[in-house]
């Protein structure tokens, strides 16, 4: 088993945290993991992306040129990485911010209205957890519970009171995708 995921969005959408959480949960489940950020000179407001690789084998290159999965939180990110996703690979994208028709016939498209779902549980900042929840519900190699359990290790001490909210967001994203694609 080897899964290469690129996660991308605006700085501030929690892209890096989402990647770290998945990598940490993967490590706890006994997989080899790597998390690699792409960094620019801007600290806030630019584009952010990271590559997570989860594998049963030792990970050679920590880079992913042809990812199995793309999680795109905004249009520029989708546009940038869409063509690189493997044939029959999966794309999870934030349809709240991406209204354009997405053309990718040889890939599995998953539209997640991330902002609306996050707003439903009362905090639009947890969109990252919503889309991660959807991804995990569909690609079941790491359990949702393992990821929820990892939150306390990844979220800094200052924000520990937000763990429950993040758990609800993960569940919300999972419920959404289970409902539309059982």
């Amino acid at each position: 088993m080897r899964e290469e995921i690129i996660m991308a969005g605006f700085g501030g959408q929690g892209i890096m945290l989402m990647g770290k959480l998945l990598a940490f949960a993967g490590m706890k489940e006994g997989y080899e993991v790597s998390w690699l950020p792409s960094y620019g000179p801007e600290m806030r407001g630019g584009t952010a992306n990271c590559t997570v690789i989860i594998s049963t084998e030792k990970i050679a290159s920590p880079l992913s040129y042809r990812p199995d999965t793309l999680i795109a939180m905004n249009y520029p990110s989708l546009h940038k990485f869409l063509s690189r996703v493997k044939k029959n690979g999966s794309i999870y994208y934030n349809s709240s911010l991406i209204q354009n028709k997405v053309d990718a016939e040889d890939k599995n498209l998953n539209e997640i209205p991330v902002n609306e779902l996050a707003a439903d549980i009362g905090n639009d900042k947890v969109g990252n957890m919503v889309i991660l929840g959807s991804y995990l519900a569909k690609r079941r190699f790491i359990s949702l519970d393992a990821v929820k359990e990892s939150l306390k290790e990844i979220i800094s001490e200052k924000w520990q009171d937000l763990i429950e909210l993040n758990k609800r967001a993960l569940e919300k994203g999972a419920e959404y995708i289970n409902k539309i694609r059982p």
Binding site: K20, L36, Y39
Partner: peptide, 10 residues
Amino acid sequence: DGVIGQMMEG
């Protein structure tokens, strides 16, 4: 290099 420094692994 930047990859070794910034990358996270177990």
